[in-house]
Structures are given as structure tokens and as C-alpha cells.
């Protein structure tokens, strides 16, 4: 069963002795439902990765970094998780994120989606959906609503959207959603 898009899975493992880009590895690409599961079932769950690691799933041709032409004007819907949630919810939320993006759950705005990223960090893990145009307000909001529903997050929980241009240039304390 062919997917609408071909997807590439990337793995990042932090090694401070090497340049950021040298730590980023393309794992594989797939474009069918069956191959998605073959990849998913044979990769380590995020909760088992060591801190500093990321998985990224991006449409083929888009590199998982702000600098890519299809990311640089974009941003991300960010879900920040507490340390306790790694044990209980992290793997589930990542899988729901993957199903949401490969299934093109955002309707006509699915073309705005570039990919999804999970960051495993000691201070707290993060999951995000990256979109290509932060100024496309209608698309961004629609994607955010659908994404929140896909994750089953309670309505009162607020998730934020951050433009990559801000993430790249501002410190965490000045960063606005």
C-alpha cells in the first residue's frame, strides 16, 4: 500500500568530538505501509535510546535541519515531555506522530508538513512536527489542531509553534511561541 510520500528515517547520535552534521545518519527510506512497519519493528524504541539521540522522519529530499530550503521559513509544533513521561508515554506519542504524518492526516495541508523529530534529552524529551512555512497561519493552525487530536492530548494542554528562524537565533528564555 503506497504512501502519498516517500519518507527518510534519520538517526542522530551526539558525539561532541565531531561536527553536528557528521553525527547525522540516514537510516533508510520507505514509501509503503508495509515497509514503514518493517522499519519501525526493527528499530530501537525512542525510550531505549541514550540522551542526546534523535530520530527524524522527513519527506524524501528534505534534510532534517533548519538550513534545508524547505525548512528554513518553517517551524515546528513542539510537544515537550516531562522526565516521567519517557517511561509512560514517549514511545506511544512518537508512534502516533509517525502515523499522523505518513498517513497524511492533515488533509490538504499535509503538503506543508516536512517531517517529525524526536529528541531524547536528560532534561526532558521533545517531539515535534515540522512544517514548511511559519507564516502560513491557516495551515499551521490546522496542522496543530489535528496533531493535538492525533496525540490524544487533553484540550486544556497547550502546545506551541516555534519558527525555526527564532529557534536558531534566540535563547530559550527569549523564544516565543
Amino acid at each position: 500500500h503506497r504512501l502519498q510520500s516517500r519518507w527518510a528515517l534519520w538517526f542522530f547520535k551526539n558525539d561532541r568530538s565531531r561536527a553536528w552534521q557528521d553525527n547525522l545518519h540516514l537510516v533508510t527510506k520507505f514509501d509503503t505501509v508495509e515497509d514503514f512497519w518493517a522499519v519501525y519493528n526493527h528499530t530501537q524504541l525512542p525510550s531505549k535510546l541514550s540522551p542526546g539521540c534523535d530520530y527524524s522522519l522527513f519527506k524524501d529530499g528534505i534534510e532534517p535541519m533548519w538550513e534545508d530550503p524547505r525548512n528554513k521559513r518553517g517551524g515546528r509544533w513542539l510537544v515537550s515531555l516531562s522526565k516521567q513521561q519517557r517511561h509512560m508515554e514517549l514511545d506511544h506519542l512518537w508512534l502516533e506522530t509517525l502515523l499522523c504524518v505518513i498517513g497524511e492526516s492533515f488533509g490538504e495541508y499535509s503538503r506543508e508538513v516536512c517531517g517529525a523529530v524526536i529528541n531524547i534529552r536528560t532534561k526532558g524529551d521533545k517531539i515535534a512536527v515540522w512544517t514548511q512555512e511559519a507564516e502560513n497561519r491557516t495551515g499551521v493552525i490546522h496542522i496543530g489542531h489535528v496533531y493535538k487530536e492525533c496525540l490524544g492530548l487533553p484540550p486544556k494542554m497547550i502546545i506551541g509553534y516555534q519558527a525555526h528562524a527564532d529557534t536558531a537565533t534566540k535563547s530559550n528564555t527569549l523564544l516565543k511561541n
Binding site: H1, R2, L3, Q4, V33, E34, F36, W37, A38, Y40, N41, E96, L99, C100, I102, G103, E104, S105, G107, S110, C150
Partner: peptide
């Protein structure tokens, strides 16, 4: 047409043996 799949449809394939 656009290939949109909901989560239940996608989940149905998780443990399906691969065709050879």
C-alpha cells in the same frame, strides 16, 4: 488521488507477515 490512511488502517499492517 491523495493517499490518506487513518491510524486504524495503518495499525492493521503492523504484524502482518511480509509478502515474498
Amino acid at each position: 488521488g491523495k493517499k490518506q490512511y487513518d491510524r486504524e488502517f495503518l495499525l492493521d499492517f503492523q504484524f502482518m507477515p511480509a509478502c515474498i
